Amino acid sequence: MIGYYIHHHGRGHLSRAVAIARALELPVTGLSSLPRPAEWAGDWLALPTDEGHAALDPDAHGELHWAPLGHAGLRSRMARIAEWIDRQQPRALVVDVSVEVGLLARLHGVPVVTIAMPGRRTDRAHVLGYAISSAVIGAWPPAATGMGGGLPPLDERLHAVGAISRFAPAEPRAPAPPAGPRRAVVLGGAGGDSFTSEAIGRASAATPGWDWLHLGAHGTWVDDPWGALLAADVVITHAGESAIAEVAAARRPAIVIPQPRPHDEQRSAAEVLAGPDWPALVLPEWPADGWPALLESASQLDARGWQAWNDGHGAERAAAVILAASRVRSAA
């Protein structure tokens, strides 16, 4: 049996976990303070939250990310994970993402597979978390070398498996001439973004040949944006890994606007996406004007280039890495 720790911020960690769990040959137990999703097939260990009040020395003098002294929620959370490890004896624990949970599992003699995140992650806590991992998975293609540019050297333990999406990739299609109003889909996220209704309204008013649809926390939230993505002529999105994976699966040209995140996560991803290999225009912020030209330029990109980013087999390759790490068992 495999354990899978799922961070509770945003929705990208959860959607990635669901895709990887489906591809694994072993039973998978989810560990999270998020509610169990309906599509999760295995067991689910509900964890207490570790948030809620002022924190004392939360980073352990710079050695960790979140381990505040005297925090009852953190204590209960870690105790519940430790008790579960002792009772279930998992073959490996996938961590997406928490250095502290990874350390807890490794101190119990459980192989740890860490899901890496883009960004500048050379702080002591990240270096420690990667160092104790049996394997590290990057959900980006090997050609996107800058996505893991902030990772410490990991030799053969780092596996770039390709993007991981909830959706099977669509058939690639070349740009087509417009027939009636075209569709611009704004794909916001649960983690917050600068895609306000006012800004989108101004962009819509300036582009009369386009219909705009705003999905996300500040627009219309939908759990399944797949149909809207397939119908889009251009997708305007943040640079979160799951959002890019789903745009790539839909094979739609994109305008990518990275949002502020710790460790420059989205800015680092956007730097890679600005390269010539990917069908995306990358902007530093939401532009106040110029939308007719931007949408026209983006619509002419050949979105078949997303094939190299998301070929639909990232979850399977991640599962293979996890299974390999799980074969290391104690003799006791």
Rank of each mutant, 00 (worst) to 15 (best):
E100R: 03
W291G: 01
A269W: 07
L56H: 13
A274E: 06
F167C: 12
G219F: 07
A125D: 06
E39P: 01
L128I: 12
L31T: 05
T122I: 07
A125F: 06
R166I: 07
S268T: 15
A280G: 10
G73R: 07
G73M: 04
M78Y: 13
P35G: 10
T114F: 07
P177T: 09
V127W: 06
R91H: 14
H8G: 08
P48K: 09
R252T: 11
S98T: 11
S194A: 15
A288S: 15
A41C: 10
V28K: 00
G10N: 09
I132N: 07
G150V: 02
S204K: 10
G30F: 05
P90S: 13
L301R: 06
W40C: 03
L47F: 01
H313I: 09
R120E: 15
S194N: 14
A38V: 14
V136S: 05
V28M: 05
G227D: 13
I322H: 02
G305R: 11
P141V: 05
Q266M: 08
G192P: 04
A199C: 07
A325E: 04
S268A: 15
G149F: 01
L301N: 03
W44K: 03
M147F: 13
A228E: 15
P175A: 04
V161R: 05
E83W: 08
P48E: 10
S165P: 08
D277W: 10
G52L: 12
A139G: 04
G70W: 11
